[in-house]
Structures are given as C-alpha cells and as structure tokens.
Design a binder for these strands. Sequence first.
DNA 1: CTGTAGTTGTCCCC
DNA 2: GGGGACAACTACAG
Length: 486
Amino acid sequence: MVAVVYWFRKALRLHDNPALIAAAEGASSLYPVYCLDPKTCSRARGAWTNPNRMRFLLESLADLDASLRKLNSRLIVLHGDPVEALPAACKEWSASRLAYELDYEQYSLRRDKAVRSQAEQAGLEVVTRVGHTLVDPEALLLLSRGAPVTSYDKFRGLLAQELKARPVTTLPPPASLPPPGRTAAPHAIPSLEELGLEPMGDAAVIARGGEGAALRAMEAHLRRRDWIASFEKPKTSPTEMLAGGPFDAGAGRSTTVLSPYLTFGCLSSRLLYERVAAVYAEAAPRHSQPPVSLHGQLLWREFYVCCMHATPNYRRMAGNPICRQISWGEDAALVAAWREGRTGYPWIDAAMTQLRREGWIHHLARHAVACFLTRGDLWQSWETGAAVFEEYLLDADEAINFGNWMWLSCSCFFYQYFRCYSPVAFPQKYDKQGAYVRHWLPQLARLPAKYIYEPWKAPIAVQKEAGCIIGVDYPKPIVDHQAAAA
DNA sequence: CTGTAGTTGTCCCC
DNA sequence: GGGGACAACTACAG
Ligand SMILES: Cc1cc2nc3c(=O)[nH]c(=O)nc-3n(C[C@H](O)[C@H](O)[C@H](O)COP(=O)(O)OP(=O)(O)OC[C@H]3O[C@@H](n4cnc5c(N)ncnc54)[C@H](O)[C@@H]3O)c2cc1C
C-alpha cells in the first residue's frame, strides 16, 4: 500500500503534468491537495487582498476538482501554512510519498525547503519535477556557468542548445488515477465569502479560471492560423477591446490573454509552444520570428524565469548584481496617484483603472505606466511599481514582473532611457477617438477627441459642455510631462 | 578600442 | 500610417 500526496501549487491542470504522473506511479492511493495559505503564500498573498485573482484561483480549483472527479478522484483543499498543513495531512493519511512541481519563486523556494525537510524527517519520499517552463532553469544555469544571462540573443543560443539535448515534450492527461482514501474533514473548495473576501465589487472578468477555459482559449486562438503565424508583438494595440470579440479567445484584445493561465499553470507553456509550432509548420516558411513572434513571447517568459533563477535579490535593486543602482525619489503621494489612476493623464489613469478592475493590461500599456512611474515622469522606484502590479495582476509572476520592471526603468536589459513614452502621443497612435479612455474613465466620456488625452487643455466651455470640470470631476496633471522628460 | 545592435519613441513630413 | 531624422544608452563581439 503506497499512499501518496500530490501537492498542487501552480500547474493547476491534468494535461502535461509530469509531477502528477510521477506521483501516481505505483501508488495505491493518491491525495490531490491544494493548500490555501492566508499568511504567506506568494501567489495567494495577492489573492487574499485581490478578490479578482482569488476568483480566478477558485474557478481553477473547481475545474480541477471536476476533472479529478471524472477520474474517481477529487481535490482536497487544506487551509493554513503549508509548512504545517502538508506534513499534518501526510501523517493523517499515512502517506509515504509527497510529490509536487518545482517552483523557483523566492517565497516558494523557502516554503518548499521547509516542507521537504519536514517530510523527509518523517520518512517520506519527496518527488519533484519541472513543469512550468520549456526547459529546466537549473539546466540553463549550468550552460551559462552560473551567470545570469541578460541578453535575449545569448539566451536564445543557450536555450537552443538545451532544447537540442532535451526537446520540448508534453504528457497527456492521466487516463486514471489512484483514488484518495477517506478524509476526516470534507476539505471542500471555499467561496470568496467564506474566505472573508468582499465579493467582486467593480472588478471585471477578462478570463475565467481553469484548465478547461485555458484549453478552450488556446484552441480558439489556434484556429486563427494566419494570426498566429504572423503575430508581431510590437505591432499589437494596447487599446484594442473589440466589442463582441469572442470571450473565449482573449476577449477581443490584440494579444492572447493566456497569461493568467500560464501563470497559474492552467495551461502548459510546452503544450502552447508545441501547438504554435504545428501552426508554423503548416504556414511555413512564412511566419514571424522571435523576439516578436508568439514563440518569441514564450521565450521571453523563459528568459526571465532563467534570469531570476541565476540572480540573487532579483526582487530588489539593493544587492541585485544585474540591477543598476539609481537614486529614485520617495514620494508617497505621487505613487498613490499613479496606483489609483489619479495622475491627470487619461491614458495612464485608464490603464491603471483597467489594471485594478480587470487584472490585465496589454503589454504596451504596462510599458506606458511603468515608464511613467519610473524614468519617464514620476522618478519613483520600480520596486514600488512591481509591488502594485503584483497585487493587481491576474498573471502576476515574480520572474516576469520584476524583470520587466527592471527593463522599463532601464535598470537592466534595456538602457535607451531617452526612448520615453508620451502619455499623450503614444495612445493617439492606436486610438484617435479615445474609446479606451472613455470606457475605463466614464467621467471623460463626453469630451471631444481633440482633448481626450490632454483634457486640461480643453476650454472651460468645452469642459462644462462635456460635464467634466478638470480639477473637480477629473484631476489636473500631477506633473508636467514635457518638463519631466527634459 | 571601435563598431554594432537592440521586440515595442517622438516628431515631422509626405 | 509609414519613412526618415533625431538623439543617444550600454553590452558585447571583434
Ligand atoms: C512592467 C511589466 C510587468 C509585467 N508583469 C508581468 C507579469 O507579472 N506576468 C506576466 O505573465 N507577464 C508580465 N509582463 C509581460 C507581458 O506584458 C505579459 O505577459 C502580456 O502582456 C500578457 O498578455 P498575453 O498573454 O496576451 O501576451 P501574449 O503576447 O499573447 O504572449 C503570450 C505569453 O508569452 C508570455 N509573455 C509575453 N510577453 C512577455 C514578456 N514581455 N516577458 C515575459 N513573458 C512574456 C506570457 O506568458 C504570455 O501569456 C509584464 C510586462 C511589463 C512591461
């Protein structure tokens, strides 16, 4: 009799889940658990303050539970610090094996070290597998001789080398699983209310959680073969929100919006990589290339994960060897205005509002608001911005988020700091009428297009006519972009 | 040391 | 909306 506990953390899926398959091998019973961790859990840290992300997580757990039930299994939800809850559960069920997918985020490394040592002391076999990325970041670390790689081209070279030795493969979902034994408590999936979270408020749903939703979204995108094959990231629009765009295929946005699924592991990055490769093979030889292609996007993800794995203090400026040391300002009022969408620049405020309400903004909107907060206008630390993103994003990912913040603030990877986004000119390129701003900031909805990105320039008669007095119904700009840029 | 390349700038002009 | 001038960074290859 071999009782096994499989611990879901990321990889909230059955397809392409190597650690789950390894867990089940030779097991007579398998207890699939997820541990909701109110105090410390890195992913749930945001989830507990952000009902929208918790909503996404709970939907993902519900979907997982439903899929497990089709295999005569079920999801067992534990509460509390995993360092206590996991060993206790293993003991209760007399487990002899604990299995989980590796996770290289800072908090996870610490947590897993503690859980592993407890489990091993209790005589359990601990089984782990890589499943979140195309390659094992540890293998790439070897290829780069322990040094962080900060150039995409160099990274591509090393990655190609690693992929030659160990090509991308995927596993099908298990056809059957050993059943879990009886549990003393029901361990059911809680609701938002039961977790003490306010229901959604003014939050907007851009994507439903779960492996099923993830696979449907991926399939919907894959059917648009030309779009997949010709995808060029810098040419996609940050303001696109096509009305009636299919909800299952990115809700009418100009990129896939698969990021929350990849972050939570509802979707395997390797499966996506393979399926996109298959579209390329059909479209060959005419398809876009990294860094701008869809494959290129997955390589960026890989790039940051591997870079974080090789970098101490990756989340901070201090003590971070790849990060430029810059004396950022410390102005809480400016940061608060930025976070709450009160900068007086409609494009910035609309994007920050979308971020807060929807938990997703387009890559170039992330560029715009990150540039504005740091080197562009407010001169506030990228760490501050990254913390706000980490709280609000559905797709919050330590490696990608903190890495991109270093990029945008010209602290690492990218240094052309004179290439600065204008909060007025940039959105104009994509959305002359300002539909995006009107959607997220309805108080500006009736302003003429001429003033939509710089409403303080509207004559007072125009402001009255639009029912929006600048300084009363919408703030005056907190900084002068021209002056800040100079 | 020099030359070059880097996902995703702005402004002006056709 | 696309092309070129502008201004001008750093890392890394040679
Ligand atoms: C300041 C800043 C913070 C960011 N924080 C995050 C974050 O916390 N989590 C996150 O997933 N992405 C983050 N990104 C990267 C990028 O903006 C998002 O991945 C992308 O917008 C998600 O939308 P999508 O799934 O439609 O992307 P697509 O263009 O459809 O790309 C497909 C997938 O590739 C990956 N990807 C795309 N762009 C990047 C990139 N630049 N770096 C790494 N991986 C990428 C993502 O997994 C994405 O889902 C950040 C970017 C910036 C500038």
